Simulated scan of single mutants.
Amino acid sequence: MFNPFALPPFAWNMPLSGDVKDISPVTSWFSPQYDINIAGNAALEKQVITKVASYGKQLGKLTNAVLEIADGKPGDAVNALRAMADEIAAIKNKTLVDAIEADLAKLKSQDKAAYEALLKRLYD
Rank of each mutant, 00 (worst) to 15 (best):
F2P: 05
N3F: 07
P4V: 13
P4K: 07
A6Q: 12
P9N: 10
F10S: 14
F10E: 15
A11V: 09
W12A: 13
N13A: 13
N13G: 06
N13Y: 08
N13Q: 15
M14R: 14
G18S: 01
D19H: 12
D19L: 11
V20I: 10
S24W: 08
S24F: 07
S24D: 08
T27I: 11
S28I: 13
W29D: 11
W29S: 12
P32Q: 11
Y34R: 12
Y34G: 04
D35K: 14
I38Q: 11
A39D: 15
G40Q: 05
N41A: 09
A42G: 04
A43G: 04
A43S: 06
L44Y: 04
L44C: 03
E45F: 02
E45A: 05
E45W: 05
E45G: 02
K46Y: 02
Q47K: 15
I49P: 00
I49N: 00
T50P: 01
T50Q: 07
K51N: 06
K51P: 01
V52I: 03
A53Y: 00
A53F: 00
S54N: 01
Y55E: 04
Y55C: 05
Y55T: 05
Y55I: 09
G56S: 09
G56W: 03
K57H: 02
Q58E: 01
Q58D: 01
L59D: 08
K61I: 06
N64I: 02
N64M: 08
A65N: 00
A65S: 01
V66H: 08
V66G: 03
L67V: 02
L67W: 02
D71T: 07
D71G: 09
G72E: 04
K73F: 06
G75F: 03
G75N: 04
A77N: 02
N79T: 14
A80G: 06
L81S: 01
R82H: 09
R82P: 03
M84Y: 03
A89T: 06
K92L: 02
N93W: 10
K94R: 15
T95D: 10
L96C: 05
L96F: 11
V97M: 10
A99E: 14
I100N: 11
E101Q: 15
A102H: 14
A102P: 04
A105F: 11
K106V: 09
K108E: 10
K112D: 11
A113Y: 06
A113F: 04
Y115Q: 08
A117I: 11
A117N: 14
L118C: 04
L119S: 05
K120W: 05
Y123G: 07
Y123L: 15
Y123S: 14
D124H: 11
D124Y: 10
D124P: 06
